[in-house]
C-alpha cells in the first residue's frame, strides 16, 4: 500500500490530498495566470521600466519630480531589490492577491464545487485547508517569481548602463522575501475570508477592493481631523502591510519616492506581527465558517 505505484495513494493525509487537488485546479485556472501575469507586469513597469525611461530621458519619474538620476539608478540596482521589491505589494499587488483569494473561495459556492468537494470524504476542514495550502503555494511562488524578475531586470539595466552588478545581501533578501510573503499572504487570506463570508466572487472582489483601495486610505486621511481615529487606522491591514514595506525601505509616497500604499506608520516588528495576526484570524474564521455552514 505504500509503494510509489500504489494507485490509492493512501499514504497521503486528507489535507495533503486536498491541497494536491486544489493545486491542480488552480494551476489550470486561466484567471490565476492572468492575475499573476498582471502583477508581474505592473511590478516590472513601475519598478523598472518607467524609472529607467525617466532616468534615460532625464525627466522626473511619476510622482517623483526632482529625484536625482543617480538615485533612480541606485533604486534599479540588484542590491536594491530587497528594498524595492515590496513597494508595489501593499496596495496594487495586495489587491490582486485579494482578488485571487476571493475568487478561489467565493466561486465554489456559485459553481457548486464546494458541495462536490465536500462529498469526496476528506472532511470539511481538510477540504478548506487544502484550498488555503494551495493558495499559500501560489503566494510563495509569486513572491519568489517577483524577486527573480526584479533581479533579472536590475541585471539587464546594469548591463545596459555598464554598471557593476552588486548582489543583494542574503539576510536582506531573506527578510524581503519573508515580508513579501506576509503581505501577499495576508491579502490573499483576506480575499479568501471575504469570499467565504459573501459566498459570491463578485461581491467579495468588489467589497475587498473598495476596502483595500479606498476605505482604508479615506480613513487614514480623516484620522488627521478626527482625534482618536488614528488608533484604529494605525492597526488596519493595509496600514500594517504598507508599514512593513516602508520599514524595508520601499519609501513612503509622501517622500515622493515610493508607491501608493507604502507607509511609515509602524515599525517592521509590530507591522509583521499585526500582518501575521490578521492572516491567522482570516484563516481561522474562514475555515470555521466554511466547515460549519450548511451547503445548499
Amino acid at each position: 500500500m505504500t509503494t510509489m505505484t500504489d494507485t490509492s495513494q493512501s499514504g497521503l493525509s486528507p489535507l495533503t490530498g486536498s491541497a494536491r487537488a486544489e493545486l491542480l485546479r488552480l494551476r489550470k485556472w486561466p484567471a490565476v495566470w492572468i492575475m499573476v501575469a498582471v502583477w508581474l507586469l505592473l511590478d516590472l513597469l513601475f519598478a523598472y521600466v518607467f524609472n529607467y525611461v525617466a532616468y534615460r530621458t532625464g525627466s522626473g519619474p511619476f510622482g517623483g519630480d526632482g529625484v536625482p538620476p543617480d538615485a533612480l539608478l541606485a533604486d534599479m540596482a540588484a542590491d536594491a531589490v530587497p528594498r524595492i521589491f515590496t513597494a508595489g505589494m501593499p496596495m496594487f499587488g495586495g489587491a490582486i492577491m485579494l482578488i485571487l483569494g476571493a475568487l478561489a473561495t467565493g466561486s465554489g459556492y456559485g459553481w457548486g464545487t464546494w458541495k462536490t468537494t465536500a462529498l469526496q470524504g476528506p472532511g470539511r476542514i481538510s477540504t478548506f485547508g487544502g484550498t488555503l495550502g494551495a493558495l499559500a503555494a501560489v503566494v510563495a511562488s509569486v513572491v519568489v517569481a517577483t524577486f527573480v524578475l526584479n533581479l533579472a531586470a536590475a541585471m539587464v539595466i546594469a548591463g545596459v548602463e555598464g554598471q557593476p552588478i552588486t548582489w543583494p545581501n542574503a539576510g536582506e533578501a531573506a527578510q524581503a522575501l519573508g515580508a513579501g510573503a506576509l503581505i501577499f499572504g495576508m491579502w490573499t487570506a483576506a480575499g479568501a475570508f471575504v469570499g467565504v463570508l459573501t459566498r459570491s466572487p463578485a461581491l467579495a472582489v468588489g467589497l475587498g477592493l473598495v476596502w483595500s483601495m479606498a476605505v482604508e486610505n479615506l480613513l487614514r486621511g480623516v484620522s488627521g481631523i478626527l482625534p482618536g481615529l488614528e488608533y484604529v487606522t494605525d492597526v488596519l491591514p493595509g496600514t500594517a502591510a504598507g508599514s512593513l514595506a516602508g520599514a524595508l525601505g520601499a519609501g513612503d509616497q509622501a517622500d515622493g519616492d515610493g508607491a501608493p500604499g507604502v507607509l511609515t506608520i509602524l515599525d517592521a516588528g509590530p507591522a509583521a506581527v499585526l500582518l501575521a495576526g490578521y492572516l491567522v484570524v482570516f484563516v481561522l474564521v474562514a475555515t470555521t465558517v466554511s466547515a460549519r455552514r450548511d451547503l445548499t
Binding site: 491542480l24 464546494w114 462529498l119
Partner: peptide, 28 residues
C-alpha cells in the same frame, strides 16, 4: 453522491474535474 445537479469547475475539462475529485479522494 450527486446532489441537485453537478457542481464542477467550468474552466476545467471533464477529465481534469474528475482528476481533482480523485485527488480529494486520494485515488489515482
Amino acid at each position: 453522491a450527486l446532489i441537485e445537479g453537478p457542481g464542477f469547475y467550468p474552466y476545467l475539462s471533464g477529465r481534469d474535474n474528475l482528476r481533482v475529485m480523485a485527488r480529494y479522494r486520494r485515488l489515482g
